[in-house]
Amino acid sequence: MTMSHVGPATKGAAPAPAPRRHIAPRTVDTLVQVSVIVALAAFWEFGARFGALNPFLLPPLSTVLVRLWTDLLSGVVLVDLGLTLYRALSGFLIAALIGIPLGIVMSRSKAVRWFFDPLISVGFPMPKIAFLPIFILWFDIYDTSKIIMVAFSCFFPIVAATYAGTTALDKWPIWSARSFGAREHEILWEVHLPMALPQILTGLQVALPVGMITTVVTEMLMGGRGIGGAMITAGRFADSVGVFAGIVEVIILGFVVVKSLEYLRARLLIWHPETRR
């Protein structure tokens, strides 16, 4: 083969351009979220430092973080966080242990659904905190009434989500399992629950922040140790730094708890299309 047979494209061929690197959408979302938080924190700090905001009503963020660090070293924060987390998770687990089986039974039994459906429909939109005086009268002013109040608040979204998830199921997998001779309890564990699991987990993700909010509110109303109790005590003594330190503690605790449940959802639904996306 001579050089005359070499085409012009072969002689002057330029190297192929390097493929462009695309930033993942999740990375972009994370950067945007971090940027918004940093901007709000900077506005809070400099606004309070330079007089744009009243430093008593809104103390500088650095002062709040110093108080938080001091309380952390003394162990006060750990005790308050531990008590609040214990009450929130205890009530949440009680609600889940009762609400998930009840939602499943309601979807499979007309008699149970006939009895509980009006109660769930009436109780769901009600302000649950209105029952706190009743729980205090029935139980005590310590952890029992607080935990029951949290469980009562978390119960309704869990039952509603479980009932909706186990009712609106595709019939074809159920019919296929029955055609292969599967028994009803096998269909329940191997077909119903896996198919309804995304909806059940959604109900749990709705109920957990509700439980956190209810815990802090009950601690504020009833007093004692805990994040809510510490915040209301600081407010009574006009300690605005202590109040905002409690708010930061609630934000951090809520973020960690919610993200932990999201991670658990991703692990439990590793087979589901939503996790693959």
Rank of each mutant, 00 (worst) to 15 (best):
G103F: 04
L68N: 01
V217H: 02
L72S: 13
C154P: 02
L78E: 12
A164I: 01
P194F: 04
P127S: 14
A164D: 11
I148G: 05
L93K: 08
P173A: 08
F139D: 10
L93V: 14
T63C: 07
M1E: 10
M149P: 02
A14E: 09
L61Y: 02
P198F: 01
A160R: 10
Y263W: 15
A52T: 09
P273R: 15
G224V: 01
W138P: 12
A207Q: 00
T233P: 08
V105G: 08
A111R: 09
D29G: 15
V38F: 08
I129Y: 05
I247G: 02
A13F: 07
P19K: 05
R108A: 11
G103I: 11
P101L: 04
V77E: 08
I174K: 05
V38Y: 06
T166P: 03
W175C: 06
E219P: 02
F244Q: 06
R277D: 13
A52E: 10
D140W: 10
I37R: 02
L78D: 11
L81T: 12
P25H: 02
T27P: 08
T30W: 14
I158A: 00
V248W: 00
F92S: 05
V105E: 04
T63M: 09
R277E: 14
I252R: 03
A130W: 01
T10S: 09
I270A: 15
S179T: 11
F46M: 05
A161F: 02
A52Y: 11
L204V: 11
G242C: 09
L65F: 05
P209A: 09
D80R: 00
R225C: 09
T167I: 05
L221W: 03
L61K: 02
L137K: 14
R26H: 11
E249R: 00
I98E: 05
V159I: 12
T167A: 06
L65S: 03
G51F: 05
T63F: 01
P55E: 07
P101W: 01
T218E: 06
M1V: 07
F115D: 12
G203S: 02
D29N: 10
W189Y: 07
V64H: 03
S153Y: 10
L261V: 15
V258D: 15
A177L: 09
T70R: 11
Q33D: 14
Y163A: 07
G123L: 07
K259P: 13
A168V: 09
F43M: 06
R276Y: 14
L188C: 05
H5A: 08
L137D: 10
V6R: 04
I134A: 13
D29Q: 13
P209N: 06
R178V: 07
T27E: 08
S4W: 11
Y86E: 13
L253T: 14
R276F: 13
V77Q: 02
R236L: 13
T233A: 11
